[in-house]
Design a protein around this nucleic acid. Structure first.
Length: 592
RNA sequence: GCGCCCGUAGCUCAGCUGGAUAGAGUACUUGGCUUCGAACCAAGUGGUCGGAGGUUCGAAUCCUUCCGGGCGCACCA
């Protein structure tokens, strides 16, 4: 409907008398928005106020000219000038009836553009380190990323959802070491747990499965392992030196292959757990991309090559530096250390180059707000390698604070006392979880109240919306009980019988859905959709309650035309609620 | 010190990339179930949009500055 108005205005702009014609009339995209106040009609545009100056006319006079040039359209009942120069469009009732019929015809595709009508997007999110289970912070990334992916797909992008596995580097070695120690304990060989190791209980099952598959293949005596090692933190030493020495000892005792086998076992165990966790949350990834593969495939080599060939690297203090300052970063960055080992940043730019090489024109990274400093660096890397830096878009998500009522739940990752995503989902349920995470703007810190999320009452919006859906289902159950059926043909033809204010309001809100999807996708704000669904549920509940005030306003009435028309409207509302919840990854229940 | 995010009703937050009289939920006050689910609805109370300047037809929104809160500023990932 909005597109229709936009087209009419565009047509009027080029049809204006020549002295009023803007030189770039074809390029001007009219801004059309829903009116907030029904007395202002259905849609309004501010175009006359925007353009008046350039044609040296006051906005109202220009608006009058524009209206003269406006083509006729059956959906438009009348057009008028209001306020400082707004042009207000009043639509016919039939325009809305047609849109309701479209909802019912298109069903789950209502509000969706044709697939592949926009550029392909690589959407990377979560990408948690595989050294610990997903926690509540990752949950926000999962829920946001999944919802954003659905929104982008809904407006016609082809979306590849990707999880970047940080399976290279020291942290992963420490993970393998930690599992190895637990494995040794399994066979009764105890050595003091390194201060820098991963102490969490979540490694126990992985160590147990290692023991089951490998038996004593990796068993070594504690004495031989700790012999001549520097002191750990507990004994007044340095925890980093100690853990690195311990890893080196493990490598020498087990051989590189042996140690790698343990690391891989640990990694696979952690990844399987994260994947299961995410799938249970309804968050699916199309690809799990290994950081290690960047080394083995030579992607890092070729990325650094490209940097060097473009003259954007130099050597200093034995290390290789990238001239990040030439591309807007605060300081230059090391890509290869003195010891010949590449930095994390090296694999990062290689990874983003790889995304481009794989053919994605647009890249979106969903990152924690604490990574904001990293954006300029990676963009700079892309630019230095000859890729457009603006092809990388970054959505920064603010922190999640967990509350139980008024009490903040303390979380420390090192201590291993953080609440996992799995615990959260089990406690509050998946729907409340998915909904809550995306209910606030992503650049706002999120206070996740466990008590509120669990509450099955009106102050919990997820149930409020789901209840609207279940209520429609209940109406149709009632219909069956009364031996009636919904005659869609009659309903389609009788939509003009919907004369009540609350019916009209509901109809208007239902038809806003495609505009909301466009907006939420364009601004990367799933919470826009959340707010809309709440409004839609409100309008539905109001229409429903009208029947409690006055039986003549019920959906199921004796008058067959009216009944079927109302049922059609209610069905359209249900469809839109369902489509919206589907994008958010929240279920639309028939009963509650 | 530099960078990013935030500051809107008692509380939690929206505010459609600058529009018309700033909105929801919650809390509080009041009213509404003998047939479609009251897990609901209706009405009311509640605002210096952190402060001060500026940009223009028009600012909660953009710019500058100050105040307050959060997060970053590695040859860690």
């Amino acid at each position: 409907m909005k597109a229709t108005i936009e087209r009419l205005i565009s047509a009027a702009l080029v049809a204006l008398p020549s002295e009023l014609l803007s030189s770039n009339a074809n390029a001007i995209k009219p801004e059309v928005e829903r009116t907030r106040d029904t007395s202002h009609g259905d849609y309004a545009t501010n175009i006359a106020m925007r353009l008046a100056k350039s044609v040296r006319l006051n906005p109202k006079a220009f608006a009058a000219e524009l209206i003269k040039a406006l083509p006729e359209h059956p959906d438009v009942a009348r057009v008028e000038i209001a306020g400082p120069g707004f042009i207000n469009f009043h639509l016919t009732a039939n325009a809305y009836h047609n849109e309701i019929r479209r909802v019912l015809d298109l069903q789950s595709t209502y509000g969706r553009a044709d697939p592949n009508t926009r550029p392909s997007i690589l959407l990377e999110f979560v990408s948690a380190n595989p050294t610990g289970p997903l926690h509540v912070g990752h949950g926000r990334h999962a829920a946001y990323g999944a919802a954003l992916g659905n929104l982008l797909a809904a407006i016609g992008h082809t979306v590849t959802r990707e999880f970047y596995i940080n399976d290279a580097g020291r942290q992963v070695d420490i993970l393998g070491l930690s599992v190895w120690i637990r494995y040794l304990e399994h066979f009764g060989e105890a050595l003091p747990f390194p201060a820098n190791g991963y102490k969490g209980a979540y490694l126990a099952p992985i160590a147990t499965s290692l023991a089951a598959t490998a038996n004593k293949e990796f068993f070594r005596g504690a004495a031989s392992i700790v012999a001549d090692l520097p002191a750990d933190e507990a004994n007044g030493g340095d925890k980093d030196l100690y853990v690195d020495a311990l890893i080196a000892r493990a490598r020498s005792l087990l051989g590189e292959l042996g140690f790698q086998a343990i690391v891989n076992h640990a990694l696979n165990g952690m990844l399987a757990d994260m994947r299961a966790d995410l799938e249970a949350m309804g968050v699916h990834f199309d690809k799990w991309f290994s950081e290690r593969s960047l080394t083995t495939s030579g992607a890092i080599d070729s990325a650094l090559d490209r940097l060097e060939k473009s003259g954007n690297t130099y050597r200093k203090d034995g290390a290789i530096w990238f001239k990040a300052t030439s591309f807007g970063d605060d300081e230059d960055r090391v890509v290869e250390r003195e010891n010949g080992i590449r930095t994390y940043f090296a694999s990062d730019i290689a990874y983003h180059l790889n995304k481009r090489v794989r053919g994605y024109s647009h890249l979106i990274d969903v990152l924690g707000a604490d990574h904001h400093g990293y954006v300029a660096r990676v963009r700079g890397g892309l630019a230095a390698m000859g890729e457009p830096p603006e092809s990388l878009e970054v959505a920064l998500l603010q922190l999640v604070n967990l509350y139980r009522g008024d009490e903040k739940v303390a979380m420390g990752k090192r201590e291993g006392n953080f609440v996992t995503l799995r615990q959260l989902r089990e406690e509050v349920g998946n729907d409340a979880c998915r909904f809550y995470y995306v209910s606030r703007s992503h650049d706002q810190q999120l206070d996740f109240d466990l008590e509120l999320a669990k509450r099955r009452t009106t102050d919990n919006p997820v149930f409020y919306i789901q209840y609207a859906h279940a209520r429609v289902a209940s109406v149709f159950r009632q219909l069956v009980e009364r031996d009636l059926i919904h005659d869609e043909k009659v309903g389609y033809g009788a939509l003009n019988r919907l004369a009540q204010d609350h019916e009209h309001k509901l109809m208007v809100t239902v038809t806003r859905y495609p505009e909301i999807i466009d907006l939420a996708a364009a601004t990367r704000t799933p919470h826009t959709l959340v707010n809309y669904l709440r409004e839609l549920a409100t309008d539905f509940h109001a229409a429903y309650a009208a029947g409690n005030e006055n039986a003549a306003h019920r959906f199921i009435v004796d008058d067959a035309e009216l009944r079927n028309a109302r049922l059609s409207l209610v069905l359209a509302a249900r469809q839109v609620i369902r489509n919206g919840l589907d994008i958010l990854g929240v279920s639309a229940p028939q009963t509650m």
